[in-house]
Structures are given as structure tokens and as C-alpha cells.
Design a protein around this nucleic acid. Sequence first.
DNA 1: ATCGAAATCGTAAACGTTTACGGCAATCTT
DNA 2: AAGATTGCCGTAAACGTTTACGATTTCGAT
Lengths: 342, 342
Amino acid sequence: MTSIKDLARHLDISIGTVSRALNNKTDVSQETKSKVLKAAAELGYVPNQAGRSLSKGKTNVIGFVLETDSEGMMQGDLFFIRVFDGMQSVLTKRGLNLVALLSPSNVEPEAYLQQIVARRFTDALVLSSIHRNDARINFLNQQGMPFATLGRSLVDGGQPWLDLDFDGVVEDAIARLTQKGHRTIALALPRNDLNLRHIMIESYRKNIAKAGLQLDEDLMIRISPGDRAGVTLVHQLINMPQKPTAVIYSDHILPFGIYRGLADLGLTPGVDLSLIGVGTRLAAFLTPDLTYYRFNLFDLGVRIAEALLTIMDDPTAAEGRPVVRESVPFTFIEGQSIADLT
Amino acid sequence: MTSIKDLARHLDISIGTVSRALNNKTDVSQETKSKVLKAAAELGYVPNQAGRSLSKGKTNVIGFVLETDSEGMMQGDLFFIRVFDGMQSVLTKRGLNLVALLSPSNVEPEAYLQQIVARRFTDALVLSSIHRNDARINFLNQQGMPFATLGRSLVDGGQPWLDLDFDGVVEDAIARLTQKGHRTIALALPRNDLNLRHIMIESYRKNIAKAGLQLDEDLMIRISPGDRAGVTLVHQLINMPQKPTAVIYSDHILPFGIYRGLADLGLTPGVDLSLIGVGTRLAAFLTPDLTYYRFNLFDLGVRIAEALLTIMDDPTAAEGRPVVRESVPFTFIEGQSIADLT
DNA sequence: ATCGAAATCGTAAACGTTTACGGCAATCTT
DNA sequence: AAGATTGCCGTAAACGTTTACGATTTCGAT
């Protein structure tokens, strides 16, 4: 590998000048600048990260922290790539490297995060799978590691966050369902303890009341673990005293299980049970067509990266600083999975 | 952050001794070792990666290089997490950090790889999405970067590789199909230029001949891009002069499209068209049950990591050194997607 | 008591980069 | 023309760690 020292010797100028030339600093003539750039290209010089990190105290690496749940994170799988790509598209322009980090399944996520922070492996982090009381937020704050979160939490770390508008999903879903005559609407809740679950519960309570319906706590069902969650859910719903006519969910895999569960009983989605929830492109494969909400995940990545950059550029951490905190909107995809009961 | 210097001052011993104590070297008494360890724990000392990298010339980081195809890599999505987890489970035991790297969609994968290698961001790499003539292999070899590949290539870099046994999948599938009386068997090929496609073609040719069937090149169909690949494929198959009774594939999403395409035409999988190929747990949601092959991806990650470690531990790159090069076996999952025509 | 070996530790250089500081020459000011 | 300014560059310290080398002490053996 050719180092800056080799470059300096080759050009017979000092190391300092080479460094300034490469970084396009002032205090170096235009002529030497171009000479240095030319030589650097010829010798295939690329700055060594470790050296630069040590000197600047910055690593130029941003970490995207993923969590695996006990299910092996099938849920997050399809989200990850798109968001990552979006983030990277803005970070590379700034010379920042994005890496995905995944806590080993045999290690506590908090312990893993501590390692990363302590060795100063990254300049900043983006956290996903945010919990209602996420201990990581305060931890990162007190460690002085800039970060943003995909999802909001009850604990406020002053960090920028972006959230998928699940609140709006539930609201819109209940509105659509009640308009089509549904009166007994179930809510399928994620099994893990993400804040998402509480957001859905609150939105459900609010909008059920708003629709003038009677709130039945039993209609909020936490889906069971495992691949057969959807199938199990169908059996649960079918056997309830007052059978729900519709179910709202946030898990994009769940409808596959529900379709399967219904098929096993000779029932038809959109007729015997209505479904609406969050979906990905996978939804296009269901018959009859699934009615669902979808999010622009690439855009989500772009925006969270931009939000992260603003707080990194302004390390003063001004108290009153406006910080990005938004729910990104969904788009509604019309299908045939909702029965019209009117 | 507390550095090794702080530790040394706090204990009133030299920096060098502290370092040797922390790294459990000889030449330091058991007594000071424990004193240092204790103080390190108290002060929350964690070695700085940049400093260590600079000194040792090693980063302790292993990169898992993912490729996105034009489809946004839905194909690889579900594979990624499991393999990553498997790799990490063995690498963390060695104090190595695993990160996932994804070339930006607006940057050439080769250029991205060059950056990573040139700045010595990682100690070693694992490449996925291997092409038939993968230029990255020779590049990494000449750069002296240790690596392993998930998938084999025509170009031999002497690196360890692990491959899903697609050859065996096609062989087994043809055997099962012909045993059930199928005579016109289509092969759905991946659209991208992965070596996988050629492996499937070769296995198909060989085993069609072995079964005493007439080879019809038209039966090897490259699936179209986009989400509706399966649907399109059904239409292609239906409209062929001699309609295939079965189709073999390697894309775990494809059967969803095929089921959908058949449903749209009022046809039934396993009756009007038989399917068999590679599947993931998603397959469990299809009705009627899909007949498929599945791989243990966590185990794949474990084994590729172990293979990588062996060549990293033995940097002499002995010519005759035995190197891991295996196809990992599949397990067969019986379903109802194959019609018995006998 | 002397010698050699072993155990233990400190010193300092090295890894590759950035940057504050000072020096020098050329140019500008009056 | 003297002084002030500017442009350009070299020097050297600093970042945090590892490690070769040498120095000192201890200990057992003769």
C-alpha cells in the first residue's frame, strides 16, 4: 500500500503539504495541488482509514443497528435493504461509509451497542426496532454518540426520529372499515415489545371511540410467535364469542398466514374475514388482492440520513434546535380484502 | 474516553506494561495483570480501534458484501439475516466484528469494493452473489485481501467457498418429477447473471438426458424482471406449443407469483402445473402446500466464517493447502405442488 | 559471593494521518 | 525603500496502540 509518506518522497515535498493538498486546504498553491492529485492517482494512493481516524477522532463510518427478534427477524428483512440503500445514497456524497450492524443472537443488544460505542467504531448510529422505553437512547446520549432512530420512544433523547405512520394506518383502516359497515374490528399486535405496539393500541382506542363503537379489549390480540402466527390468529378470531368481521395488523407477513388459515377452513379473505394493514410488494401475490398500506422505504432512508447529518454538522447540540421528528406517510393500495357489509 | 495512557497514569506503571497486561502477554506478572484488568473495568476502558488498527495493521472487521440487483434484492433479503447471524456467531468468539456492506445503487460494485480494500477498512471479506466470471475474485487476490465466497465462480482464486447445492436440487427435482410421470419439465432461470444460472442449466441438461428425455432449449426460461415474474411465467408456460407439466426454479419468491398467476386463470398448483424449487419459511403460507427444498442458512454462515478464519490464520497461503469448497445440502419438504401423472 | 538465567518492567519507535506553528520569500502599502 | 501583508511550505507534535529492545531486579546454582 502506498502511504502519504511515499507520495511525499516521490514528489520531494513534505508530508504536511501533501496532506493539505489532498484535502484541498488553503495554504498550498494550485500548482502543487494538481501535482499531488496527479501523483496520488498514479500511485493509487487511498488514505488509510485508521490513520485518519486516529488523527481526526472521526471514523467516517455510520452504523445502522438492526435487531433480530426471536423469529430471526423475518419482519425486518424486507425493510432493511431499501432503507439502507436510501441512507447510503445520501451518506456516500459526504464521504461517509454506511455499515449494517447486527447484534449477535447470543449477546444482549445493549452490551453489543456498548462495545461499538466504546471502541468508537462509528461516528454516529441509526437505531431501529425502537422500544417503548428504549434504554439505548439515554445511553447514547450520555456517551455523546450522535444518533437518530427509526421509530419514536417514550424516552426523549432529543434525537431526530422518523416513524412510519402506523397511527394513521390504524385511523384510516378503522374509518374505511366502519364506512363499509364493520362493527367488530380486531387488532393484531406485534409480539415483540416495540413501541409500535403501543402506538397501535392508542390509535385503536381513540379511533374506535371516534367511530362510536364499543371498545372490546379482547379484540386486541397479540399475535403468537412462529411462522404460523396468521393461521393461529384466524382460529382465535373464528372462535371468539362475537366474531370480528375484520382485522387490522402491522406485520407484512401476517396476511399470508391469515390467507392460509382461512383457506384451510374453506373460508375466503375479503368475504368471511376482511384484512387491512401494512404490506410490502409481497402483498401483490395474494389472491384475492390484498388491501393494504405501503411505505416508501428508500425515501425513509434518505430522510433519516439527512436528519442525522444535520445534527452531526451542528455538534453544539443547541437545546432549542429544531430536529426532524416526523411520521412518514403511507399510500393506500386498494384491493379486495375488505367486504362491504352495508 | 479513557485511554491506555489514563490507565497507566492511574496505576503508576508504564503504558507498555498496561498494554501487555491487557493482551495477556508474557513478561508481565500475574499480580499486575489482575491490577490492570481491575482498573480497566473500573474506568470503563475499551481499546480504541483506530489506534490498534494503526499499530497492528489489522482492523478486526470482517465485511459481508451484499449486492442489490435491479429488483432491490428482494431475492437476497431473506437470506441475509440468517447467514449474517451464523457468521457472527463464530466471528465474535474471535473478537472480530462483522459488518454488512452494500454497494450504493449508483456506484459500480467493483468501484465500491476497491474503496473498501484500498482504505483497508476490513481484514477480510465474504462475497455473495457470485458471477460466472467474477472479476472481484482476481482483484481481491491481487490486493492480498483474504476472502471467501458464497457461491463458486469459473475464475478460481484459491479462496474457500460454500455453495448451495442447486445442482443437487435440479437433479433431485427432475428425478422426482419423472418418477411421477412428468415428461415436459420447464426450468425457470434467475434473471441476473449469477453463476447459479449456469449451474442450473448444466444440471438440467445432464439430468434431462439421464432421465432419457428429449432436451428442449425452449423449456429453459429466464424469468422476467419485476414483481410479476411468476405471473408472467405462467402465461409463457401455458402458451407454449408443448405445454410443460412442471417447472423447477431457484427463486423463493417466484412460486408466489406462479400461484397467483395460476389462480388468475382458474388453475390449480399441483394439478394443472407442478412446482418444485428452493423455498424459505415463506413457503409455508402457500395453499396447496408447496413442495420445496430448503437450506440451513445459519449453518451456512457458520461454515463460511470458519472457512474464512482458517485462511486468515494461515497467511502463508500455502499452495497445496486444503480449502473448504463444498456444496451445502438441502432438505426436501414434501407438499402437494407436484401432480402424479402416472 | 559470583554468575547466568529468568522474570518483570520501562523506553521509545512505529503505524498513517492531520494541523498548529513558524519560517521564508514575494508582493503590497505608504 | 522600509515595513506590513500575503502565499506557500516545512517541522513537529498529536491521536492510541503495539512491540522490539534494553534495563533492572530476583533467584537458584555453583
